[in-house]
Amino acid sequence: MKVDFYTSKREYDQKKEEFDKAIQKIIEKGNFILGEEVREFEKAIEEYTGAKHAIGVASGTDALVIAADILGFKDGKEIITSPFTFLASASCITKHGGKPVFVDIDEETFGIDVNKIEEKINENTVGILPIHLFDQMPDMDKIMDVAEKHNLKVLEDAAEAFGMRWKGNGEEYKHSGAIGDFGVFSFFPTKTLGGYGDGGMIITNNDELANLAKCYRVHGASKKYHYDFIGYNSRLDTLQASILSVKLKYIDDAIKRRKEIAELYMEKLKDCKNVRLPIAKGDQKQVYYVFNILAEDRDGLAEYLKKNEIGYSIYYPIPLHLQESFKYLGYKKGDFPVAERICGEILALPIYPEITNEEIEYVCDTIINFYKNK
């Protein structure tokens, strides 16, 4: 049996008529740049997340770069974040001459260790960039308390976290990205809400920040050909907005199905002593964008999965502080031992709403057989 790590084809086949109609409508109208469907989609995101403002941009990376620029994460200022993440979570800081200051991660959640943030704060620190990674959010109550105490800005990297909600000590759940000063989403095809190409979104509850983001995405223009800032050319394509609007209608069903798949994985693998399963902390709602395990002989297992035509991915094989691009920061091996160890053990298994229970069982049986036959 062949099991893809991810495929968009099944979802397209199921909703082909809706997708084709949405795409054809844009082509016939010819309004490809910031068409009315973009604003309609932004309004739908505002309603779904509870954020006051949503601003569509060309990618999740652009969303981070623009938000970091506006918040002043630049010019030698320090911003605290995690070394265990995708490049863009830190490169958005260095793009503007800011300095990422890394903090090790929590071994069970893979998110930033919130109890180690405050010790890295000094007079040059201006912000915190928490990453809502894979399946859950770090303790946003703690992060916001630290930020308020030290007058820091918070940029939530919620690129992987559409649909995640945090309750913590509050009376109601708050959507990822809608807690800090800015939050960002990615609509890369594999995401929980993914398009048929690149796309991103900035959300905020601050009117002034929203107006700045709207200017920055169109070269810094407050109105056409009137440039108040040196901005960016980063706009969510109308085609992508139309496709994403179709998918948004079914997002709760997709999240529910992802939870069912994750629970099936956990049930089937619970007695396999060679793997550790994800653990959630805090009062929150997960989305299971990725299903990771920590595996003994990870590389051997990966090769065995490949041999048996099972797709997988490794998020992430090298922590950012050991990447050549961040060598100038002066970190060395051993500085963040938890992140380094996790990079050698972590393995992502196939998870998307259209995968079948039979395929999940095959993946689990293959993992169990690998360790039995060692």
Rank of each mutant, 00 (worst) to 15 (best):
M1D: 02
K2V: 14
S8I: 01
R10T: 10
Y12K: 03
K21S: 12
N31Y: 07
L34G: 00
G35F: 12
T49H: 07
G56H: 13
T61D: 13
D62Y: 15
A63K: 10
L64R: 02
L64N: 06
A67V: 07
A67N: 09
L71W: 13
I80G: 05
T85L: 06
T85Y: 01
C92E: 04
K99F: 02
V101E: 02
F110G: 00
K116V: 00
I117D: 08
E119K: 15
V126P: 01
G127A: 12
I128P: 09
P130G: 12
I131V: 15
L133Q: 13
M140T: 08
D141M: 05
E148W: 06
E148D: 14
D157G: 13
A158L: 11
A158M: 09
A161Q: 08
F162H: 06
G163Y: 11
M164R: 06
M164F: 14
R165Y: 05
R165E: 15
G168K: 06
A178L: 02
A178P: 00
P189Y: 10
G194C: 12
G195I: 02
G199L: 02
G199F: 02
G200K: 05
I202W: 12
N205W: 11
A210P: 02
L212W: 11
C215F: 01
Y216E: 14
Y216L: 13
Y216H: 10
H219A: 13
A221R: 12
F229N: 05
G231L: 12
G231I: 11
Y232L: 12
S234H: 07
T238N: 10
L244S: 03
Y250I: 02
A254V: 01
K256Q: 09
R257S: 03
R258W: 00
K259Y: 05
L264W: 12
L264A: 12
D271F: 10
C272V: 14
I279Y: 04
K285W: 07
K285N: 11
V287Q: 07
L294K: 14
A295H: 06
D297V: 07
D297I: 06
R298W: 05
L301Y: 06
Y304L: 01
Y312F: 14
Y315L: 14
Y316L: 02
L322S: 13
S325Y: 03
Y328I: 08
G334Q: 11
D335Q: 06
A348G: 13
E354L: 01
I355H: 02
E361P: 02
V363M: 07
C364G: 08
D365L: 01
D365F: 00
I367E: 04
K372Q: 14
N373Q: 14
N373E: 15
